[in-house]
Write a protein that binds this DNA or RNA. Structure first.
Lengths: 264, 264
DNA sequence: TCCTGTATTCGTCATACTATTTTTGAATTA
DNA sequence: TAATTCAAAAATAGTATGACGAATACAGGA
């Protein structure tokens, strides 16, 4: 009531956005989300390395200028994603990366370019080569007309992107996500997030070369055509060709994939 | 345990008052976890169908006899898993199943036998047929000696299970999880949970037939041998044979997989 | 060496207040 | 009168605060 905007001078520092400035309606939208994101970024960027202990909850409250409720719920979210593990007296520790939910879209976003660590880019490419041709085959016999239309729409957006590499890549990623959905296999669809992340960091570069774009356009069109004709073999073949170009374009980025065959 | 006890009036532990009987060491272990599990079960069992709104938080507090803190953090966990979505004034609604994180071990556990709905069993089998042979191939060239030893240990447990179908199935599932891990592909490893769930509900039946068990034992041994020899082709072949028997055994259970080609 | 007590930290509870959004209903207009 | 607009109200999740309980690592004594 009567908006006493003056109170709460609690300096909510640490958050990436707006500063103190007691501007007009300094509405604070989703404090929760901001804290979760800040902590998630700090963990994924190894600012809090694996095995390390986070500041205790009351300290985090001070650091971010929020209540313990918010901090705890944020920690709960991150724990659910496999990043953290809290225990009384010992504190909140960062889990081993093997427990991270790598298929979580937010984690992948927080990792950003670090996705190249951990062999993730290579793993994702292997996964695509394993799954996508099969998904294309399934889509050939199961895709709805609506889904095929959506695929074509994505293709059109690719074609019309012109010199906008960003837009081209976005449409390209959407194409692959629709394809996975059109496979009508729920497990495949769960892979959308990680393939999305992998594509975003690999397509962007290869799509900068105009020749590659034309080639990609042609192959994508072939795939849509194969789906329309319900031609499983052709769909699979088109997907294979697509991935061959991906392997070729990513070869330099994957230089020296490490073979950590030995136990740590 | 597995107490169905889906009753909402469940006898929560230790009400604030009337604490009359201080039971043995039953204390109250993990109130949080209990509430989360109860809500998760109620959602996965469609007691709260997709699109329905849950009771408001204060009501849930009464129903489970816990504080709002616990209820909220439980809801937060379930929301992170994609089951729920909360908004002020409107309440907490159950998300569409397409948003559920099907690779989450807990969700799969909560679904229990309902895993047969939604075509999940079929999807999992398709995923196995797509991924496992490739994983076996990768494992042939990347598995550590320790991992191969672990695989053999699992195989030994299968062999020595005798008439204990439960133990045999458990070892069988472990075998496949180790195999995925040995592929040294982090994305493949994330599929462990769902393959685990799929196997638990399919192997158990097929392993009841003694002939199938002997056959399975032989094929699993062949796979281990192939890994030891670093023979990719043989590993892939063994995996394929394994899955062929799985398809054969599951055929009756998958009767009439529905082809929902149309958009719902 | 083993045991016990203590300090620290997360886990839970309780209450109050804020923010957001749906709903309602009155005022306005065609 | 009927439809429209807009502002006030009601309801619910979101946040803040403070207190206490429970679990456990650690230190000190037997």
């Amino acid at each position: 009531m009567t908006g006493p905007a003056t109170g709460h001078e609690a300096d909510r520092t640490g958050l990436p956005d707006v500063g103190g400035k007691d501007a007009p309606q300094a509405r604070r939208p989703r404090v929760q989300k901001n804290v979760t994101t800040a902590l998630g970024l700090d963990i994924c960027s190894e600012r809090y390395p694996v095995g390390s202990v986070l500041p205790r909850e009351s300290d985090l409250c001070e650091m971010y200028g929020v209540s313990r409720t918010v901090v705890r719920e944020s920690l709960k979210i991150l724990a659910t994603k496999g990043l953290l593990h809290s225990r009384p007296r010992v504190g909140t520790v960062v889990c081993d990366k093997a427990e991270w939910n790598l298929l979580d879209a937010q984690i992948l976003e927080w990792m950003g370019p670090r996705i190249q660590d951990l062999d993730l880019l290579g793993c994702i490419l292997e996964t695509r080569r394993t799954v996508e041709p099969v998904a294309a085959e399934f889509a050939a016999e199961r895709a709805s007309v609506q889904e095929i239309a959506d695929l074509e729409a994505a293709w059109t957006r690719m074609r019309d992107a012109g010199t906008d590499t960003e837009a081209f890549t976005r449409a390209d990623v959407q194409f692959h996500e629709i394809l996975l959905k059109a496979s009508h296999n729920q497990v495949f669809r769960q892979l959308s997030s990680i393939i999305h992340a992998g594509l975003m960091y690999s397509l962007h570069r290869s799509n900068e070369v105009i020749d590659h774009r034309d080639e990609a356009l042609a192959i994508h069109r072939d795939l849509v055509e194969a789906l329309r004709l319900r031609d499983k073999a052709a769909a699979r073949a088109a997907s294979h060709r697509m991935l061959d170009t991906a392997v070729r374009d990513l070869a330099p980025a994957l230089r020296g994939r490490r073979q950590d065959a030995d136990g740590a």
